[in-house]
Design a protein around this nucleic acid. Structure first.
Lengths: 161, 161
DNA sequence: GTTATAAACTGAGTATACTTATTAAAATAT
DNA sequence: ATATTTTAATAAGTATACTCAGTTTATAAC
């Protein structure tokens, strides 16, 4: 404690936890080139046919801009396809490619292992409480699990209660 | 649930929690222009005299590159000063300016309120368990509170156990 | 049927948060 | 005393994750 100024403020710890989580994600994937966000979007697109980008953004809890960038990268790598929608020419319909599915199959086990390792310092009871608390916070602040998806979340749309 | 694909995977929830945390931070500050990372560094520099950047990086749990960028921005705004160190001319000594202290005084209450609001969905017992679990995870993965500070954490330095 | 509004996306800009490579200075080894 | 290694900082590059402004297309109002 003499050596650092960690005040253990929630916001600080949450930021570091995210960094740790991403770090473990990357090492667990070893040679595979895939970021957590790319994985989330690939998974979302794999689970649902013909999503447009705004829909992906809502499901992945990202803004439209970030979503557009990430989908573009996935498209460039041949992991997803993108076409202008017939019914609504403003929107682009996104789908996984066979390559995308193959990649998802290769990484799914490794990602599960990463999640386990991340939470390994907690015993099963602690782990369940931790995840329940996490979910509770998100449900309160973001209506996760409800039909109301607003996004984005970076700045200015959270009012103090 | 029909509306979204939230699988409630830990990594996913942690990322969204971080987004919510940052969002609440920004709205709680209202007109004040300060990011969470800038606040962390400003706070670190306020609490310790004559830190060099690598030291700040260790204390704030950031890599040298990010720390350099953020300190540069703070310097540009006149919130910190930076000079080449006398004892070690490789390193730069950083200190808060009076403006920096003034800003810290203005925002400290608002930031406390933000932390409270973030965790408001939890009752006191839940809140304590949540923070204890959070700390436990970080201590295990990062030696927070110990003298061994390694950083950075983004990629590749976490081995699966 | 035209007009106003809203929605999907894009582009530019800012700020993390890392990576590798490079430079310079200090510490260590022999 | 010199050669090696380590350390502090920077530079360039990538990938989030937002902001706001703008374009195109669809929907709603009238």
């Amino acid at each position: 404690m003499a050596e650092n100024n960690i005040d253990l403020a929630p916001g600080f710890m949450i930021r570091v936890l995210q960094q740790v989580s991403v770090s473990i994600f990357h090492s667990s994937l070893e040679a595979e080139e895939l970021t957590p966000i790319q994985h989330t979007i690939l998974k979302t697109v794999s689970a649902n046919k013909n999503l447009d980008q705004s829909r992906i953004a809502a499901l992945a809890f990202l803004d439209a801009s970030t979503t557009g960038d990430v989908v573009k990268r996935l498209e460039k790598r041949g992991l997803v396809s993108r076409e202008v929608s017939e019914e609504d020419r403003r929107s682009r319909t996104v789908n996984v490619t066979p390559e995308g599915r193959k990649l998802m199959r290769r990484v799914s086990g490794k990602i599960e292992a990463a999640q386990k390792f991340l939470l390994s310092p907690l015993d099963p009871a602690e782990r369940d409480m931790f995840l329940a608390a996490l979910e509770k916070i998100l449900v309160f602040h973001e209506n996760i699990g409800s039909d109301e998806i607003t996004g984005p979340w970076q700045r200015g749309n959270k009012k103090l209660g």
